[in-house]
Amino acid sequence: MSSDQVIHLEKVNKWYDDFHVLKDIDLVVHKGQKIVICGPSGSGKSTMIRCINRLEAHQKGTIIVHGTELTNDLKNIDLIRKNVGMVFQQFNLFPHLSVLDNISLAPIWVKKMPKNEAEDIAMSYLEKVKIPEQAQKFPGQLSGGQQQRVAIARSLAMNPDIMLFDEPTSALDPEMIKEVLDVMIQLAEEGMTMLVVTHEMGFAKTVADQMIFMDEGRIVEQASPDEFFNNPKSDRTKLFLSQILNH
């Protein structure tokens, strides 16, 4: 395994009872790579990235993140979660905490950082996502786009080297999608390793250096964006692309 491989999935399988969600998934992610994953709903793309920080447990195969294998060992899981940030479709901000507390919570409790230092860091990330003026508000008082940007800042405040995005713009009103994508593009330009589940093909073309198409629990096609959009190999990819690009 070469040193710049940060995520390595080998023959990963997962079942929900009888339903086989992930079938022999193989995936290698190198440091700094941006991978966009698309596919029809129920294809297992969210499940796959949720396995990478163990929000879901896989049943067969190996997942290695930063040289640490994901098993039931809680120590390994904690170690990996500290280095892997995640952004959710529904933002999942903590509604009972202010924006500042949302972001500084994990640095204070997980990294044992002094409160004022954690808040300084929180403010710097709020500036990065361009909403420092919202620090004292509560999530319920923000728009969807602002909430998602806070969620990104919250993940970044743990200083992860890998970011997982699970359909980050799917729950947003159209006019707010851009502000979130802009933050993600900026992050990509800074060299963050990113796995993004999304149907925003414009974003994929700008940012991705690998495209993955999943269907029925398998990786059907993996290619550079150029190949993927102009010369897809599998019929299912062609069909999927025609469906989402032609509307």
Binding site: N53, L55, F88, N92, R154, M158
Partner: peptide, 11 residues
């Protein structure tokens, strides 16, 4: 999602 968000932050 609340628990998942907290877990993903390492809590």
């Amino acid at each position: 999602g609340q628990v998942e968000a907290a877990q993903s932050l390492g809590l």
